[in-house]
Design a protein around this nucleic acid. Structure first.
Length: 415
RNA sequence: GUGGAUGUAGCUCAGUUGGUGGAGCUCCUGGUUGUGGCCCAGGCGGUCGCGCGUUCAAGUCGCGUCAUCCACCCCA
């Protein structure tokens, strides 16, 4: 029979990799919970329109990267390509109050792209959304939350980049300035994509990695110089708080995010050690998005953190070793072994019992491989006497104890 | 969607100018009547990704196809 293999760009995680993922989630709950985030669990499947309206019809994500299909009633559904839209939809549907709401979620996202290092078609994100706060303090806290989380994981050599995209009031001014600049540029100096972007989405020209384009745009107008007084003050305040918190960052005037809903503060955390897909986390402010999705007029800011990319930076994490392995030397002892295992676990020990009788040699090899502290041996002789052999794997010393006293014997051993 | 690289044992990989496929690790057994690691001996295990072609003969050469990886693009 031909074997069925996993879908391209999807992955199976076994230990130690899966253990690393669990660890990331545990630390995330701890850190984000300490800031008042409540964990929400939202669907992976949403109506396509939700993403089209929030992420932006013209974005690459919506235009060519979504897993979209019709259900049995012909409705267009999409596997979520990012978390924010679904979380906001849930927030609104739940009643969307106007106070401050801090939410955390995590899970799989889906984008139909060609896989490469740090990029899967099914990938996982940790996601924080703070709704109802427009103050720059909220921006700063969200960034600090993310930075604290990464520090807690022990990841070194990350860089934090910051920019402000302005607001609906001041961005048009900048857009115009940028357009004027690009119109004056010799089109031949730009790459094919950027010639198109000049008219469709001039902001993205700044983000182009082609050296020629970067040279041309080195002298381009900067968003920072075109912010309205409110946006400029907001951004200055965010930077001041990060300075006060001694969090290192750089301003990247070219930092433009690929999702349409961002305004004012945007940020990215980058690593030079994980290949071409260097963004470990990214986020920003999205005032107006909740209202655009039919909710109350509450502002919002959040970020997403890529777990696969984070995992590339974390050392493998071994599973916690078992306390015991119960070796069965004779078939007549199989049931008793299982019951003894149950008793030991009730006493807080972790371990496994053999499902079939084998030679002591075979069992001890297994016990050794599992790295257990203690190997218990139960055969015909022991069964007849109501005892069991307890062998310390490190010292090789073994004793015989009554089966009824086993848990107690191991307890003394553990102490 | 585009480009490059790679597909040989469960895993990591050798395989010469085309001539009946190997190593290390893993696993199993034995070296000890019921005692692990280290060592020694033996054993299990392969449609050489798949298909077509060239040839007396293809793991090796050609074409196609599928898969994986890396990069472009874009993003977490």
């Amino acid at each position: 029979m031909s074997r069925i293999q996993k879908i391209k760009g999807f992955s199976d995680l076994f230990p130690p990799e899966s253990t690393v993922f669990t660890h990331m989630e545990t630390v995330a709950r701890e850190v984000f919970g300490a800031y008042g985030c409540r964990e929400v669990r939202v669907p992976i499947l949403e109506r396509t329109e939700l993403f089209a309206r929030s992420i932006g019809e013209e974005t690459d994500v919506v235009q060519k990267e979504m897993y979209t299909f019709a259900d049995r009633k012909g409705r267009s559904l999409t596997l979520r390509p990012e978390a924010t839209a679904g979380v906001l939809r849930a927030f609104i549907e739940d009643g969307g109050t106007e106070g401050v709401t801090k939410l955390f979620t995590c899970g799989p996202m889906f984008r139909y792209e060609r896989p490469q290092k740090g990029r899967m078609r099914q990938f996982h994100q940790l996601d924080v959304e703070v709704l109802g706060a427009s103050a720059p303090q909220a921006d700063a806290e969200v960034i600090l939350m993310l930075w604290t989380f990464l520090e807690r994981l022990g990841i070194q050599s990350l860089t934090l980049e910051l920019n402000s995209l302005g607001c609906p009031q001041c961005r048009p001014t900048f857009h115009q300035a940028l357009r004027d600049f690009l119109d004056a540029v010799d089109a031949a100096a730009l790459c094919e994509d950027c010639r198109r972007r000049t008219t469709t989405n001039p902001l993205r020209v700044l983000d182009c990695k082609v050296p020629g384009c970067r040279e041309v745009t080195a002298a381009a107008p900067r968003i920072a110089d075109h912010l309205c007084p409110e946006c400029a003050a907001h951004f200055a305040r965010v930077r001041a708080i990060l300075d006060a918190a001694a969090t290192p960052y750089t301003i990247n005037h070219r930092l433009v995010r690929g999702l349409d809903y961002y305004q004012r503060t945007t940020f990215e955390v980058l690593s030079g050690d994980i290949g071409a897909q260097s963004a470990v986390a990214g986020g920003g402010r999205y005032d107006g998005l909740v209202a655009a999705l039919g909710g109350p007029a509450v502002p919002g800011i959040g970020f997403a953190c890529g777990m696969e990319r984070l995992a590339l930076l974390l050392p493998p994490l071994a599973d916690q070793a078992m306390d015991f392995y119960l070796a069965v030397l004779d078939e007549t002892a199989l049931d008793t072994a299982l019951i003894l295992g149950q008793t030991l676990r009730r006493h807080g020990f972790r371990g496994e019992t053999a499902f079939e009788a084998k030679s002591p040699k075979a069992h001890l090899r297994q016990a050794n491989k599992l790295g257990v502290k203690t190997c218990l041996l139960l055969g015909g002789d022991e069964m007849a006497r109501g005892v069991i052999v307890v062998k310390d794997m490190a010292t090789g010393v073994q004793t015989t104890v009554a089966q009824d006293d086993l848990a107690q014997a191991l307890g003394f051993r553990a102490a």
